[in-house]
Simulated assay, not measured.
Amino acid sequence: MPMSPHLQEITPDNFEAAINLRVRSDQEHLVAPVVKSLAEAYVHPGIAWPRLICEGDETVGFLMAFFHIDWTGEGTDFRSGLWRLNIADGKQGRGYGRFAVESVATEIRRRGGAHLTTTWHPGPDGPAGFYLALGFRPTGETSGDQTVGTLKLD
């Protein structure tokens, strides 16, 4: 019987599995390592929502979301979304990325949000195709060197 993916909070019991998660070597320049994300979560308590993506007892990915942050710093544009998504080397193409986005969307809806924001590196080696296929649309903005996209949640 096939198992379903699920999210796990980061705990002392799964910390090593989290920081040892690696994306494909040709993708390392596209996303921060999990250990950096966990450090950011530590210094942004209450904003960052880090979770492992697991299939049974196996760690297959990592996501970090954010909720209701002041996007521009001007107090007028509050957003929620997917901050990081790392799918383990050898585990892509199995629905874990889609599961991660759907899980964050569910949490945003639960908190009263209607849009999911994320960023991605543009270019042929970036994940634009993945996000566009899920319904994200570029906003025309950039965040550093990344494209900003949003998904309307129904």
Results as ranks from 00 to 15, higher is better:
42 Y>K: 15
81 G>L: 02
81 G>F: 04
152 K>D: 14
4 S>M: 13
89 D>W: 00
43 V>F: 12
37 S>V: 10
74 E>V: 12
99 F>T: 03
137 R>K: 15
133 A>N: 06
9 E>L: 14
23 V>D: 06
57 D>Q: 15
76 T>A: 14
77 D>R: 14
148 V>K: 03
46 G>D: 09
26 D>I: 12
15 F>I: 05
141 E>L: 14
72 T>Q: 15
12 P>M: 09
7 L>W: 09
18 A>M: 01
123 G>P: 01
109 R>N: 11
94 R>P: 03
20 N>G: 14
135 G>F: 06
25 S>Y: 11
11 T>H: 09
154 D>V: 12
117 T>G: 00
133 A>G: 06
44 H>F: 10
110 R>L: 10
82 L>M: 13
26 D>Y: 13
24 R>A: 15
94 R>N: 15
66 F>T: 02
109 R>S: 13
19 I>L: 04
138 P>V: 04
40 E>T: 09
73 G>D: 07
57 D>K: 09
67 F>L: 13
82 L>I: 11
19 I>G: 03
11 T>Y: 08
7 L>Q: 06
62 F>S: 08
121 H>P: 00
26 D>V: 13
78 F>S: 11
18 A>E: 02
62 F>K: 00
74 E>M: 13
147 T>G: 00
83 W>P: 04
11 T>N: 03
116 L>I: 01
85 L>H: 01
31 V>L: 13
145 D>V: 13
7 L>K: 08
49 W>Q: 05
12 P>A: 14
114 A>T: 15
